[in-house]
Write a protein that binds this DNA or RNA. Structure first.
Lengths: 143, 143
DNA sequence: CAGCATCCTATCTGATACTG
DNA sequence: CAGTATCAGATAGGATGCTG
């Protein structure tokens, strides 16, 4: 049952002027969109170990292309979740580190991780069951 | 400290055979992907008010096309977050309702909503500041 | 009422090659 | 080292019109 927990967090819906107004409001989406691309979550997770250089991240996120790593880092930097520090040495050195906001986002991510750990199997099972269903209109052949 | 908890969830991607393999099995991502498309979160939010019919949802989600509403509902149904019940009356009537899993997901959504409410402005401000920065290499003109 | 079919555009993502 | 540039495929999202 949702009621108690959810009512504590969602009743703000009504303060938005009902469902319609809430549904058009976008702060929750700002939050979700931070995490909804392929690599952001992983970069955030990697940086929880401490500041990391470009090449270090590239190795940790085995499989990411430089292009996507750059894009992901720029996006997170733009949103204030991490800082990018250039040390003009030779060879050059660039370090990425989470900001307070970034760590806060990782906290939200932890909640999602917990929920995922508890329910991912259920979801994947539902998905398998759905995909195994006979196509609509097709009557299962009796034995 | 949140970091420690989340750190434990970040794996050595190489042991999964690369990031792709990890992402397919990654429980946090399963969770995020439920919410990361444009309408899923809003449909979930709408159904928190109780079961709703297709047309009702369409009106609540002012602006959604029938195609996207159908696709979103099918996706959530497939993942076991809601049920679809057809009443073969004339005219026909189809009702969508959250499952327990769906209500649970909405609980996670509440956390995201709360975080978004607390930090969305900060993010948007960071974004504006970033976009207002002079292009790299361009020296600000002294007064 | 509750969709489905078709066409079209924008964005995401990756592969590959090159540079200050 | 830390990226940038270009090409190309896949997918999301929308517009429009039609149907059981």
């Amino acid at each position: 049952m949702v009621s108690r927990y959810l009512m504590g967090t969602f009743p703000d819906l009504r303060k938005f002027g009902g469902a319609d107004a809430f549904l058009r409001a976008c702060k929750p989406r700002v939050a979700i969109e931070l995490l909804s691309d392929k690599w952001s979550m992983l970069v955030l997770g990697a940086l929880l170990f401490g500041p990391r250089r470009f090449g270090e991240l590239r190795r940790m996120l085995d499989g990411i292309t430089p292009k996507m790593l750059t894009r992901t880092l720029r996006s997170l930097e733009r949103d204030g979740l991490l800082t990018r520090t250039v040390y003009p040495t030779v060879p050059m050195r660039v370090e990425y580190a989470l900001t307070d906001l970034g760590e806060s986002a990782a906290g939200m991510l932890a909640v999602i991780t917990t929920w995922g750990a508890e329910h991912a199997e259920e979801i994947l099972a539902a998905r398998r069951a759905y995909d195994a269903r006979p196509p609509a209109g097709e009557t299962p052949v009796p034995a």
